[in-house]
């Protein structure tokens, strides 16, 4: 698998720290943000392939708000939602808004990795499509 980077957004510091350590140990370029606002700041600086987003977060923006913002600004970035209280309805709302999938806490790292891989795959396919469209465009003007 090619290189990719992941942004984890969760207000639970222990969770965030550990999961980033574990991802890094698996040579995945993972960054953590402790709030939605912070995540958007980070995204401004550097694009991410996948964002793992906790739905329920204290403070101004919750997961859904952040998701909307990300999808608006970076449509090709895939978002995986994390939910602690099985609010399936919210998760479905999130998927309607363009999230790749949702996972219910607590999760095993393996599950998360699997989902991330799927997301990357989808993103790759998406990018491939975009690229081929662009190539076609280019060829047309050739």
């Amino acid at each position: 698998m090619h290189y990719f980077n992941v942004l984890i957004v969760d207000d639970e510091e222990d969770f965030l720290e550990t999961i980033i350590n574990r991802l890094k140990k698996r040579d995945i370029d993972a960054t953590g943000s402790r709030s939605g606002e912070e995540a958007l700041e980070v995204l401004k600086v550097k694009p991410f392939d996948v964002v793992v987003l906790d739905i329920k977060m204290p403070g101004g923006m919750d997961g859904i708000d952040v998701l909307k913002e990300i999808k608006k600004l970076y449509p090709l970035t895939e978002v995986i939602l994390l939910t602690g209280h099985a609010s399936v309805e919210t998760s479905i709302d999130g998927m309607k808004l363009g999230a790749f999938d949702y996972l219910m806490k607590p999760i095993k790292l393996e599950e998360l990795l699997k989902k991330i891989a799927q997301a990357i795959e989808k993103k790759d396919a998406q990018e491939q499509k975009v690229r081929s469209v662009q190539i076609k465009k280019l060829l047309r003007y050739w």
Binding site: E12, D14, F15, T18, I19, R22, K56, G84, H85, A86, S87, M104, K105, P106, I107, K108, L109
Partner: peptide, 19 residues
């Protein structure tokens, strides 16, 4: 639902820590 949230978050941390 409320209780689940409060329990699931610590559980998530525990799982990550053991991982």
């Amino acid at each position: 639902a409320g209780v689940a949230h409060e329990i699931n978050n610590p559980l998530a941390v525990i799982i990550q820590k053991t991982g």
